[in-house]
Design a protein around this nucleic acid. Structure first.
Lengths: 158, 158
DNA sequence: AAGTTTGTTCTGTGTTTTATGAACAAAATA
DNA sequence: TATTTTGTTCATAAAACACAGAACAAACTT
């Protein structure tokens, strides 16, 4: 696999973005590589060479990305190499995971509210308000997703 | 300030949650303390004592939380102490920040799509689809927020 | 059977993070 | 003026993180 300078540049951009979202550098670059690669896939060795990482770094990075459900691999008949690529799905699942973090927070808010006394009712009301908003999102986001899918169907039809 | 065991327990839960969302431990605990404290506020010394942190740790944690716009403080007439508390606002602003990260990602997707060739049109379509969904959310979330606020107004009225 | 390919695992290491403690400083108080 | 209160700053220690390198291992080829 031969990468252009432009591809290399975008890999770095994606890497930084993923780093900022809490991923370790090597993982971010790998995701970037799989995103810009011509065929949207890469073998272990291609990753090692194009990202100048050690084999051990790539090995553990790949297992991590697989446990995080971000990548998968296939093999080709007559070959032992693994071809890694980004897992489809996922924006829908990712979004729901995001919502879930919100849900988790609203559970925490419930616990907090359960033990708060009434020395600062204004603050309590504020917490309740946040919790209610979380709940609201919880309900509405799936509807929003449906709306999008519906719209997509129509776009496709015409 | 005297905390109950239950309060201490919830502070830890909140601390862990915030840690998982990328905050350093001390910061998460401080937010927790401000959330469960009877008056929803605490002085520098109260934070030091109740969380068993050093003064320096608390000092830098507090300035950090302030630059992140998560807390603020007031003073009371005739006292030099600062009373720290959580900043209201903010779920609306926080949510928009989240959306913004999505926007950033869709910009990256544009760059990627701009340089991808046609060796894997299926993958390209997939990327386009994700980008479109991001754009869709971008449009719809503010509407959703409005809807919530409207609903709140009605709830309050009756 | 010996060598090659395709990785994995283990150990070490430089870096970054997170917090501590001591010294310092400004304002209030005695 | 000396002391206390209320912090801040700086140097550094301890732990966690992220990666490299070498040894190892399984499957395949020659």
């Amino acid at each position: 696999m031969q990468l252009t300078d432009k591809q290399r540049e975008i890999i770095e951009i994606i890497g930084v973005f993923q780093e900022q979202n809490g991923l370790q550098p090597a993982l971010g670059r790998i995701l970037g590589l799989l995103m810009v690669a011509d065929l949207a896939e890469a073998t272990f060795d291609e990753i090692v060479e194009n990202l100048s990482l050690s084999k051990s770094a790539v090995s553990s990075a790949l297992t991590l990305l697989q446990t995080q459900n971000k990548i998968e691999y296939t093999t080709k008949p007559g070959e032992r190499k693994r071809y890694f690529r980004l897992k489809r799905s996922n924006w829908e699942k990712e979004l729901k995971k995001g919502i879930n973090s919100g849900l988790q927070f609203s559970e925490i808010l419930d616990k907090v509210l359960a033990i708060r006394n009434d020395q600062n009712p204004d603050f309590n009301r504020h917490l309740e308000n946040i919790r209610d908003f979380m709940t609201f999102l919880q309900k509405e986001i799936p509807i929003l997703i449906d709306k999008y899918l519906e719209q997509q169907k129509n776009d496709h039809r015409k």
